[in-house]
């Protein structure tokens, strides 16, 4: 069973993703900001990280760098309400950049795609 870390400061959204992904059969951990996420990556082994950009304490872009410096191969999906950061090269080190939507299909497809590639 693949283990996913959701990093999102909006509590309701975070809970929604967790519910949906758990129902799809993933094991899910939650972090409410970048700092928590970096700490959790240190202590746990994740197959994939979903990362919001604007968060308190430590934003997603800073967290992205820190997570990758710990584990270069971990697939990371940036999932944000900002559509304009897609062109920011800082986000290019992530495996995917998806603009938030109430329809989670795009996110779910990308997760399964990345996990399939990773497991090959």
């Amino acid at each position: 069973m693949s283990k996913i870390l959701i990093v999102e400061d909006e509590q309701h959204q975070r809970e929604l993703y967790a519910m949906e992904l758990q129902e799809d059969g993933y094991e899910v951990d939650q972090a409410s900001n970048g700092k928590e996420a970096v700490d959790m990556v240190k202590d746990n082994k994740y197959d994939l990280v979903i990362l919001d950009i604007r968060m308190p304490e430590m934003d997603g872009i800073e967290a992205l760098g820190k997570i990758l410096s710990r584990d270069k191969k971990i697939p990371i999906i940036i999932y944000t309400a900002y559509s304009n950061y897609k062109s920011n090269f800082m986000t290019w080190t992530a495996d995917a950049y998806i603009t938030k939507s109430s329809n989670l299909d795009e996110l779910k497809e990308k997760i399964s795609e990345l996990l399939t590639t990773r497991n090959q």
Binding site: E10, H12, Q13, L16, R54, A81, Y82, S102, L104
Partner: peptide
Amino acid sequence: HEIRNPLVTMGGYAR
């Protein structure tokens, strides 16, 4: 950005 976040949440929960 400010509007998208609550909208995404609302849409998600409506689903």
